Computed example of a mutant assay.
Amino acid sequence: MKQTVDILGIPFYNVSQSTFVDELIEAAANQERRFVVTANPEIVMHTKQDMAFNHAVLQADYIVADGIGVVKAAKSIGKPLEGRVTGFDTMLGLLQKANEMKMSVYFVGAKPNVIKKLVKHVEQNYSDINIVGARDGYFLASEAEAVADDIFQSKADFIFLALGFPRQEKWISSYIEKFNKGIFIGVGGSFDVLSGCTKRAPEFWVKSNLEWLYRILSQPRRWRRALAIPKFVMAMKRQRKQR
């Protein structure tokens, strides 16, 4: 039975990055189905105002701590997590091992030019991976089921969705019962980074747990999203008092 830590009603899986990748690889090798949510404070707070999103997130097999804020929150209530388990690093780890095992992937999301560059990057750097499908995220709600049908027909081992939250989690929640296999994971802006269209924070910022600040400084339009952080901190203070 997996150990979880409750943060504002969201059960975070207590696992290390490397162990988590190994678990997902094993599940895929066994032809199993998994739904993964990588959540930061912003996502946690959004579950409080969007009940459909809340339902989608809680339907996941695994919810992991993508943000350092979640890791610090767990420590503050005396139930520390092993560390961050990010969508980007999970995707990289899965691609590496999927390449070694000659497994299949399907990419959904991002802009048309980004998905093209992503496919080219994967073909060049993970030559033994079988890319069984790739499409941008600019499809209508009326086309969502057709996308699910195409993924089903592809029999992909890993399905990476870069549709941004809450769309990617709601999409997975809506269609995952269609499938009897496949690792479904929402990875937000990871396609932009892996394709080279957007730079990830330099190593110093990542190791200093300031990747979130780097994103705001490099993409000022994200400042509104950062407002979720102080709200998360206040909500955690209330949770500690209740304990």
Rank of each mutant, 00 (worst) to 15 (best):
S174I: 00
E169Q: 14
A156W: 04
K181D: 12
V187P: 05
I151A: 02
S190M: 11
Q153N: 12
I151F: 07
S195R: 11
E169F: 04
D150C: 09
D157N: 07
G186L: 15
L163K: 14
V187L: 09
S195K: 13
K178A: 00
D149I: 13
I159F: 03
I172L: 03
L163S: 02
I159M: 10
F152T: 12
I159W: 03
D149G: 07
K178N: 08
G182K: 06
D149V: 13
L161D: 05
R167D: 03
K178I: 00
K181F: 05
I176E: 00
F191Y: 11
E169C: 04
L163D: 05
F191L: 15
K155Q: 14
E169D: 12
Q168C: 06
V187A: 06
K170L: 12
N180P: 06
R167C: 05
V193N: 05
F160I: 01
F152E: 14
K181Q: 14
I185M: 10
F179P: 05
G189T: 12
F184K: 08
R167V: 11
R167N: 11
L163M: 13
W171E: 07
K181A: 11
E177V: 07
D149S: 11
I172F: 03
G188L: 06
K170V: 08
F160G: 00
Y175P: 01
E177F: 05
K181H: 12
L194S: 15
L161W: 01
F191G: 08
V193A: 06
F191A: 10
G164W: 00
S195L: 07
F165P: 10
F191Q: 11
G189H: 10
E177R: 13
G188I: 08
W171F: 13
L194I: 15
I151W: 09
I183L: 02
F184C: 10
L194H: 09
K181L: 10
F152W: 06
S190T: 12
L163A: 04
L161H: 02
F179T: 04
E169I: 04
D192A: 15
G189L: 05
V193G: 02
D149A: 12
G182D: 05
A162D: 04
I172G: 01
I172Y: 02
F160H: 01
A162V: 03
K178Q: 06
I159S: 00
E177Q: 12
P166F: 07
I172P: 01
K155T: 14
E169G: 03
G186A: 13
